[in-house]
């Protein structure tokens, strides 16, 4: 029975640790608890979280004073989503913020209180809500559907001669599944012939981009974490073969993408913060918010290396122009 004793010992130690930790993190008197669950750490998602906290502070919910945050991250493991969702639901938080699609679904399933999702590209398709216009009881959030039509129009404006457009995306991500459908919808009317390249891991970005060379006049990266993670490889291919590389968010433009019309993830965070504040103030049925990004980001150095001259009117309309490619 020595082994049993050891096991019981381990469980006892864990229990003590858990009790100490839960005591240590006690809620301030009369304060609110906001739980934040995210699937992974990622610059855009971190920006959402940061600005959410900032916005709540503006609305009078100050960390350590009258609000406490409980943050959990699944480290990219989808099966952990349910574990985290159950854990946060059991904590008795006032609002649970769920970032990314699988996390939002898991939290919506287990939560008994208000849920605010963020950065879910297609909340209706994910089954979270039945429509974006109507408010639903206890659940609302922000969607980061990319403005694909505007992005394709920008490509047309900067490089009018482009006919064959190579799109890199990961078929395994909900965001890019939605994205590729949108791109297919708008491309023909703007005169693009699509050539799709599927990269299912960051390591595939280089060979897939290389494979598209010679068959395309420009490259476009869709909104997925995999492809964005491998952006350096795509930039390398684009510069080597002097092909314009278009992307979809400001961070990727800084890293060498030629241009993007972007959803501001900071604004998405702020918008989410507003929804959380309304839930904390007792509202129960709030319509979801779809972010419609319209800011233009450009990279002059990338344009020069890819053999593109950006028209002055586009340069003037840009929110931000980067002069260098960030390492």
């Amino acid at each position: 029975m020595g082994r049993l004793a050891k096991i019981l010992g381990v469980i006892a130690v864990l229990t003590v640790v858990a009790i100490v930790v839960s005591k240590h993190a006690a809620t301030p008197r009369g304060g609110k608890v906001v739980a934040i669950a995210t699937l992974m750490a990622h610059p855009a998602l971190d920006a959402v979280q940061r600005n959410l906290v900032k916005e709540l502070e503006r609305q009078g919910f100050v960390e350590g004073k009258n609000v406490r945050y409980v943050v959990r991250n699944a480290n990219g493991q989808v099966q952990l989503a349910s574990n985290i969702a159950n854990e946060l639901s059991a904590q008795g938080s006032d609002v649970i913020v769920a970032i990314t699609t699988p996390m939002a679904q898991a939290v919506a399933k287990s939560a008994r209180g208000p849920v605010v999702f963020a950065a879910v590209t297609d909340p209706v398709g994910a089954g979270l809500i039945s429509s974006v216009d109507k408010g639903e009881v206890l659940i609302t959030g922000t969607s980061d559907a990319w403005p694909y039509e505007d992005q394709l129009k920008l490509i047309r404006k900067i490089t009018p001669a482009v006919k064959r457009l190579g799109v890199l995306y990961n078929p395994g991500e909900a965001a890019s599944q939605f994205g590729i459908k949108e791109i297919r919808r708008f491309a023909p009317s703007l005169g693009f012939e699509l050539i799709e390249g599927a990269a299912s891991s960051t390591n595939d970005v280089y060979p897939v981009a290389q494979n598209l060379v010679g068959r395309v006049d420009a490259l476009f990266l869709s909104s997925d974490n995999t492809v964005i993670g491998g952006v350096a490889a795509a930039v390398k291919v684009a510069v080597e073969h002097r092909i314009p590389l278009y992307v979809g968010d400001s961070g990727t433009v800084e890293k060498g993408g030629l241009a993007a019309v972007s959803v501001g993830y900071s604004e998405l965070g702020t918008e989410t913060g507003r929804l959380v504040a309304r839930m904390l103030n007792g509202e129960r049925s709030i319509p979801a918010v779809v972010a419609r990004g319209s800011e233009v980001y450009l990279n002059k150095k990338a344009a020069e290396l890819m053999g593109v001259s950006i028209p002055t009117e586009v340069l003037q309309s840009a929110t931000k122009v980067y002069d260098e490619i960030a390492k």
Partner: peptide
């Protein structure tokens, strides 16, 4: 059924 969704990535790490 328990978590309320099926995702192609849910096998990762199993």
């Amino acid at each position: 059924m328990h978590q309320g969704f099926a995702d192609v990535g849910m096998g990762q790490g199993v």
